[in-house]
């Protein structure tokens, strides 16, 4: 620790930024693994261990980033308060994404499988499109670009609209519960993941004043 005083390296918020990008990567890894469990017939237990370990690691990064932000505020005072609050919001959202990926795995652990389902291709499509959102979010964090952010926002909104429609249709579905309930839960998780990712990307680009669930103008 003494030598770290004399060594070069990332400055406070730069290191936090790297940690947040690494959190997005881990969340994507966890999500891809969890979704693959729903569309496979194989043994998912080893994958489950990996999903839980990744979730554990995500929670660890969230805690360490929170500590780093407290240290940053103590050393630098209130000059970066907006950036500190934005970073806190982003790691909280990503920690939730990690939880939601684990929730998706829990569906598979309960025996839910779509490998034989009529709508199997739809799940593959959703897996691919949501996974792409993770990649785009990581890119937006590393190289913020207004046009890319608008595209990301549009794709996320489109997906969230689709998931909402599917959940609403399932509410009125006359089929058996074992058909509707896992799908409704999955679509709900997918929608929350999309919402959290777009919130992270928007916060990174515009700060906390432009994000949040409440629109003060309404």
């Amino acid at each position: 620790m003494v030598f770290s005083f004399f060594r070069g390296g990332d400055e406070g918020l730069e290191h936090v930024q790297h940690e947040i990008v690494s959190m997005v990567g881990r969340c994507q890894h966890s999500f891809d693994l969890a979704m693959s469990c729903l569309v496979t017939d194989g043994d998912i237990e080893p994958i489950g261990e990996e999903v839980r370990a990744t979730d554990w690691a995500i929670n660890g990064i969230e805690e360490s980033v929170r500590r780093e932000l407290v240290v940053h505020s103590a050393v630098h005072g209130g000059a970066d308060v907006g950036a500190v609050l934005a970073s806190l919001l982003m790691v909280k959202k990503l920690e939730r994404v990690g939880d939601q990926a684990k929730n998706i795995f829990d569906l598979a652990a309960e025996g839910v499988r779509f490998s034989e389902a009529d709508d199997y291709d739809r799940f593959l499509d959703f897996r691919s499109r949501v996974s792409q959102l993770f990649t785009d979010t990581a890119d937006a964090l590393a190289e913020p670009d207004a046009a890319d952010l608008a595209g990301l926002d549009r794709r996320a909104e489109e997906l969230m609209g689709t998931f909402d429609d599917l959940v609403n249709a399932l509410i009125h579905d006359d089929g058996p519960a074992r058909y509707a309930v896992p799908r409704a839960m999955l679509f709900r998780y997918l929608k929350r993941i999309c919402a959290n990712l777009i919130s992270v990307a928007t916060t990174a680009a515009t700060g906390i004043d432009r994000t949040g669930d409440v629109d003060l103008d309404e």
């Binding site: 770290s4 005083f5 004399f6 400055e11 500590r67 240290v71 103590a74 050393v75």
Partner: peptide, 19 residues
């Protein structure tokens, strides 16, 4: 400031003592 921040973060990971 950046060096102080970095070294305090390193301390948080390793505890107190002589360092």
């Amino acid at each position: 400031a950046a060096r102080v921040e970095r070294s305090i973060n390193a301390m948080l990971g390793k505890g107190g003592g002589a360092p």
